[in-house]
Each structure stands twice: as structure tokens, then as C-alpha cells.
Simulated assay, not measured.
Amino acid sequence: MVAANPDAEGDRVTATPRTRSPWWRRLGLLALLLALGGGLAYLDQRNERAPAPAPSDPAGEPDYFLEDARMTRFDEQGRAYQRLDTPRMVHTPVDDVIRAEKPHGYLIDDDQREWQITGDQGRLADNGNLLTLEGNARLVQPTKAWSLETQTLHYDNRSAHAWSDTSSVLRQHNQTMRGDRFDAWINQNRMRLTDNVQGRLPQQSEDQGS
């Protein structure tokens, strides 16, 4: 502490006491740091991909499910005849059915052509021999550029037969046809549209086939 000298006229020194930061300011700073650390930890946890919960199905509890899966089926000669990619695949043992979300795959015929298939949902039953696509189902022929769009599409790999009993739209180049029944035999490269068929078939300069 410095005091003023009363005998020294004109020389006056005033002491300034040292102030301390109030306790509530120090506590607020500590709380801010803790909140910042907690927020960063939460963001790190959100960035880590957590596994999706095990799916449930009316058929019962699944015995396994796969994410970002690719399934390829082979014949007795070891040749691939069916390939299916899906972000999520579930198998239920009660009915022995594989269900796939957003399947995107290929049916491989005897000439090794790949017929592209897609849908919102897929279902493999009958020991994997029967494939059913539900919702925005699509089948694309690989060489003649025709494509089928329908709600439900079935495929039996034993007979290489694809068919739909729901309203189907067949497109090829600038041609469009619609019918209530569709059939295709991929090993024969043959298709048929029947029942209430109607469409637009403009004249073409050359025969592009069907």
C-alpha cells in the first residue's frame, strides 16, 4: 500500500486496489468450455456409422441380414446366371425367403447376355428359384434396347421365364406399348404383351426387332 506524503506539497499519489474477477465469471467460462467439449464429442459420435437395427418381419425373426451385399448364383457348370446387389438383405428361416431392399441385378441368359432388373423390393423364394420384384419393377433387354416397366415382376430361373400380371409398359426407342400381361423368355430372346394391348408404334426406317 502506497500512501500520500502530507508534507510534500503538490506530490500526491493515490493507491489503486487490485481487483479480482468475480467468481461467477470464472464459473461461466468453465461451463462454456464443458459445453463446447460435449458438443464436439456428440458430433464425433454422429459421424460414426452405427449399424442399423435388426429388421423384423411377419414371417418371424431373421437368422441373418447383410448390408451392401452382392449375391451371385451359379449353375452346375459354375457359370453365373443371376446377380443381385442390394443395400440390405434379410433371410427369414421360417419360410426360407430372402428379402432385398432396392435390388439391382442381372439375369444372365445362355448366350451370357445380361438382362438388367431393378425394383423397390425383392423377394427370393422356392429355394432361390423364384425372384419377385415389387414396386417400380423394371426389366431391360441388353441388345435390342427394349425395357419393361411394371408394378410386380416375377422370374423363374428354371424356365428362364419373366412375367407380370400387373399393367405393363414396354418401350423400345420411340415405340411405347401397354398391356395387362407380359411374358419374356430370356434364353429365347422372346417377349409377349397380351390382354388389352394398346400403344404408339411410329414408322421406323429399319426393322429394329422386338
Results as ranks from 00 to 15, higher is better:
1 M>I: 15
3 A>E: 14
4 A>L: 11
5 N>Y: 13
11 D>V: 12
14 T>P: 11
15 A>N: 15
20 R>E: 10
25 R>P: 09
26 R>A: 11
31 A>D: 05
33 L>E: 10
35 A>L: 14
37 G>F: 00
39 G>N: 07
40 L>M: 08
43 L>T: 02
46 R>H: 01
48 E>M: 10
50 A>F: 03
55 P>V: 04
57 D>V: 04
57 D>S: 04
60 G>W: 01
64 Y>V: 09
64 Y>C: 11
65 F>N: 00
66 L>S: 10
69 A>H: 06
69 A>Q: 10
73 R>F: 07
73 R>Q: 08
76 E>R: 14
77 Q>G: 14
78 G>S: 04
81 Y>H: 11
83 R>P: 01
90 V>Q: 06
92 T>M: 06
94 V>P: 15
97 V>H: 08
97 V>W: 03
100 A>Y: 05
100 A>F: 14
102 K>Q: 10
112 Q>Y: 14
117 I>L: 13
117 I>K: 07
120 D>K: 10
128 G>V: 05
135 G>L: 02
137 A>I: 00
137 A>F: 00
138 R>E: 10
138 R>H: 08
140 V>H: 04
140 V>K: 11
141 Q>M: 06
147 S>W: 01
147 S>M: 10
148 L>I: 09
151 Q>N: 12
151 Q>P: 09
152 T>R: 05
152 T>E: 05
155 Y>C: 00
155 Y>E: 00
155 Y>S: 01
158 R>A: 15
159 S>R: 15
160 A>P: 02
161 H>Y: 05
161 H>E: 02
164 S>T: 01
164 S>H: 04
166 T>Q: 00
166 T>D: 02
168 S>G: 12
168 S>H: 03
168 S>N: 01
168 S>D: 06
170 L>S: 00
172 Q>L: 10
173 H>T: 10
175 Q>G: 15
175 Q>Y: 07
176 T>Y: 13
176 T>P: 03
176 T>Q: 13
177 M>G: 07
178 R>N: 11
179 G>F: 00
180 D>T: 01
181 R>V: 09
181 R>G: 05
182 F>E: 02
184 A>G: 10
185 W>H: 11
187 N>L: 08
187 N>T: 06
188 Q>Y: 06
193 L>S: 04
197 V>N: 04
197 V>F: 00
200 R>N: 15
200 R>C: 13
202 P>W: 03
208 Q>A: 12
208 Q>K: 12
210 S>C: 15
